[in-house]
Design a protein around this nucleic acid. Structure first.
Length: 809
DNA sequence: GCCATAGGTGAC
DNA sequence: TCACCTATGGCC
């Protein structure tokens, strides 16, 4: 019997999107297991690629010959599997539902560092002309392949390769480096150490201390850093110890712990009110009974959803089970992490984008080694390699960031429910403003609704909300960002030493440069969009392709010098605000001020300690902040999202306004919210003003029904892009024709239309949209499109399929 | 993604 | 007739 392995190779194409069979060499027969990463030779040149083992099988000699000529696995990259059976199955589901390659799905589930690094070298294997050896190879045996390609003598090198005098060598490099530090281990028994102590001179305190430490360690390893910090034994003393033969120096692995220098005060479960109690009960019953069910925990802001999560997780842990808690990236603040760490201590692993690649890898391994039972993280944390999951939670389930924007375009909510079914455990979707899809499913009893209607802090009442009609402010002649009403209210809070949060809707609020004489706006040379002014480095920047240029001094069209900054970035509003309230201390929070690691945390801490009066920021301040002294929240421009040509515009506006309003009056003092808008009668704003989700939901459902939008219809978006506009356009017309022919007459195929931003990075984008209720042939049609698109791809025509896209813009 | 191969083109 | 190009299929 011979062992063979089914391997998915790291070549993301349609034709290689299937398992390949490899022989397992005798030397690795006991090592190779399902779910491990391996290095295999692939293709004509036998270049080495990374692969994932899907299956290990044993074959007889006859069976083996029937399989034809097989290649052999070169090496294994892991000591133990990195993906278990569940995650391998999950990858298959993702591939099928997102129309992406298996390899891409597998890689998505692992920390980035576990993707291979490939290196290519050009190696001399036979005599080559002296001058090439000296000039190109610099008298070395091999050079990086890239160096050879960029050399002036590529032609000659190619010829030498054909004559087998040169060879290409491929290398697969593992990037998942463990962090190693110097440590030491005792070589003495307790008695020997005791004797050594006696031989010491009386004054040798430090060495005596070291010996005591060695006795305490027994055969454990101690790092030099720990010896210094915890036991005040310095490097020199340890070196002396080594010379004396007391200890040996060793390399030890340390886990990077991003929260090592934080202290977490343990917190106790809070007393739940009736509604929280009922919700918690429903969830824990399902944990106990090992029964899957999806719950929609709909609670007004401040209703204590988090405490329900915490107690649910505690229950899972009590049963020896594990739990995943997903939080949107921007809500994954130190405050949030703190709440979980202080309740569950170091059982918690945190996964989010602010961590370095190494830190992410270590947190991942902490989970994999079962050192952590609770995982708190953003979207990709849904793939945490936990076993025996008892509870999965998605907080702020309506957040669009739960859907990945590039392939595989999975939605964390779907993955969560899949894993919930696999582990037979409850899944809790929590939100104050659920997505229409989820709320409709709760209505149809697909999910079970758990309502929380009261604020947990009984003294805290829902804030009163006022809408200010900015059209009137304009006629009054005030050209500022602030209405008189808002200014009065801010002054009032400043007088009372209370705090204010002001939010700018980022979209449409970036600054651009316009000529006052001819109206010329500086465009990006690669994209159909205007450049944005960045004050931090005084450059004009394109938000889509990253193009940068200097701020023009004169208009390139009419040479006028009357070129001015338009629009209001947070910086400009900050200046305006400072002029109006010279004595107020203002904190600005936007991409510019939070770019540096930990800046986000520092700003919030400062505000929490009441070292500032006003917090001015973009959407990032709308979520999860809990500052009891904030009694006024102002939204400077509520409409910018409303005007987008997107069927979710109203929903997003309503959600944002409700979320940000929830930041006011979380303590004992009542809160107030001011919403400035040019559309005071729009239903999204009206219902947000009354904090009435139910009415908004009903109204919006009618709108969706009229427009044949989700949740009444399923949607698929297909985008074709090419450097030449007509190629992209022609392809999308062809796709529409094909789809109309494949689908039932009930399916609605819209388009093709040019995308809202036709050109990005010098590529033209055309899209088409399919709306449908039931289309048994759709999956097949999409798969066919994917297969045929492989050919187009070589001609530079890219086609992407997005199931249930976040927007059609 | 990359290589080997096939079939085409032009320069002599 | 060869050198060089691009388009295309296969990779275990």
């Amino acid at each position: 019997m011979t062992k063979i392995a089914q391997v998915i190779v790291d070549v993301p194409t349609m034709q290689t999107d299937t398992p390949f069979t490899y022989l397992i060499p005798l030397s690795l027969a006991e090592t190779v297991q399902t779910g491990m990463r391996v290095v295999v030779p692939f293709g004509g040149g036998n270049r080495k690629v990374q692969g994932f083992v899907l299956q290990v099988l044993e074959k007889t000699e006859e069976e083996l010959t029937a399989l034809g000529q097989l290649k052999t696995i070169s090496e294994v990259m892991d000591l133990s599997p990195v993906l278990n059976g569940e995650l391998l199955d999950l990858a298959e589901m993702m591939k099928q539902t997102t129309f992406s390659f298996k390899i891409t799905c597998l890689q998505t589930m692992l920390p980035r560092v576990m993707r291979a690094d490939y290196e290519k070298w050009l190696v001399i294997v036979d005599e080559i002309p002296e001058d090439i050896y000296e000039q190109v190879f610099h008298c070395l045996d091999e050079i990086p392949f890239q160096e050879a390609v960029s050399s002036e003598r590529v032609g000659e090198l190619k010829k030498l390769k054909r004559e087998n005098k040169l060879e290409v060598r491929y290398e697969v490099k593992a990037r998942n480096k463990k962090k190693m530090v110097q440590g030491f281990r005792s070589l003495l028994s307790f008695e020997q150490a005791e004797e050594a102590k006696e031989d010491l001179r009386k004054t040798a305190h430090k060495q005596r201390k070291l010996l005591a430490l060695l006795q305490q360690l027994e055969d454990k390893v101690c790092t030099l850093v720990d010896a210094n910090k915890k036991y005040q034994v310095s490097r020199g003393v340890i070196q002396k110890g080594e010379e004396n033969g007391w200890l040996e120096l060793v390399e030890v692995e340390v886990k990077r712990d991003p929260y090592a220098y934080h202290t977490f005060k343990p917190s106790q479960p809070l007393v739940l009110n009736d509604e929280q109690q009922a919700a918690c009960q429903a969830i824990t019953t399902h944990i106990h009974q090992q029964q899957h069910k999806t719950f929609l925990l709909q609670g007004v802001t401040g209703s204590g959803k988090t405490e329900v999560y915490l107690q649910g997780i505690a229950e899972a842990l009590k049963l020896g089970k594990t739990a995943i808690m997903l939080v949107p990236e921007i809500a994954l603040t130190p405050q949030t992490v703190h709440r979980f760490k202080s309740r569950f201590g170091n059982q918690v692993a945190v996964l989010h984008s602010a961590l370095s690649e190494g830190e992410k890898y270590d947190e991942w391994r902490k989970i994999e080694k079962k050192e952590a039972q609770v995982v708190v993280g953003a979207r990709s944390a849904i793939f945490a390699p936990l076993e025996n999951i008892g509870l999965i939670i998605l907080d702020e389930e309506h957040e669009t960031s739960y859907k990945q924007e590039d392939t595989p375009r999975y939605h964390a909510r779907n993955i969560a429910i899949w894993r919930g079914k696999y582990h037979q455990c409850p899944v809790v979707l929590g939100s104050a403003t659920p997505s229409l899809e989820s709320r409709a499913r709760a209505h149809k009893q697909v999910y079970q609704l758990l309502p929380l209607t009261k604020r947990a802090n009984t003294k805290a009442t829902l804030p009163s909300v006022n809408v200010v009609d900015m059209r009137e402010e304009i006629t009054k002649g005030s050209m500022q960002s602030f209405s008189e009403t808002l200014l009065e209210k801010v002054q009032h809070r400043l007088d009372r030493k209370e705090q204010v949060v002001l939010m700018l809707n980022r979209r449409g609020y970036s600054s651009f440069v316009m000529c006052r004489d001819c109206g010329y706006v500086l465009p990006c040379p690669n994209c159909d969009i205007s450049l944005t002014l960045h004050m931090d480095n005084l450059k004009m920047k394109c938000h889509y392709c990253g193009h940068e240029e200097n701020i023009p001094k004169e208009c390139p069209i009419c040479q006028s010098h009357k070129i001015r900054y338009y629009g209001t970035g947070t910086q400009k509003v900050e200046e305006e605000l400072q002029q109006l309230f010279p004595t107020a201390s203002i904190l600005r929070m936007d991409v510019d001020t939070t770019r540096r690691k930990g800046a986000h945390e520092r700003l919030l801490k400062k505000f929490g300690e009441r070292k500032a009066d006003i917090l001015l920021g973009t959407q990032m301040i709308a979520k999860g902040l809990d500052f009891p002294n904030v009694t006024l929240v102002g939204v400077l421009n509520a409409d910018t999202a409303l005007n987008l040509p997107d069927f979710r515009a109203s929903e997003k506006t309503f959600q944002l306004l409700t979320q940000v309003s929830g930041r006011a009056g979380r303590g004992d003092k009542p809160g107030e919210v001011i919403i400035q808008t040019f559309n005071p009668t729009h239903y999204a704003i009206e219902y947000a003003k009354n904090q009435d989700y139910e009415l908004f939901y009903r109204h919006e459902m009618q709108m969706r029904h009229l427009g044949n939008y989700p949740p009444y219809f399923f949607t698929v978006q297909i985008v074709a892009s090419h450097e030449q506009e007509e190629v992209a356009a022609r392809k999308s017309f062809e796709l529409v024709r094909y789809l109309k022919q494949q689908l039932t007459p009930q399916a609605i195929v819209l388009g093709p239309t040019p995308k809202a931003i036709l050109r990005i990075k010098n590529r033209y984008y055309y899209q088409l949209v399919i709306k449908y209720k039931q289309e048994p042939e759709l999956a097949n049609a999409l798969r066919t499109i994917l297969e045929t698109s492989q050919k187009d791809y070589r001609q530079g025509l890219k086609i992407t399929i997005d199931i249930e896209p976040n927007s059609f813009i």
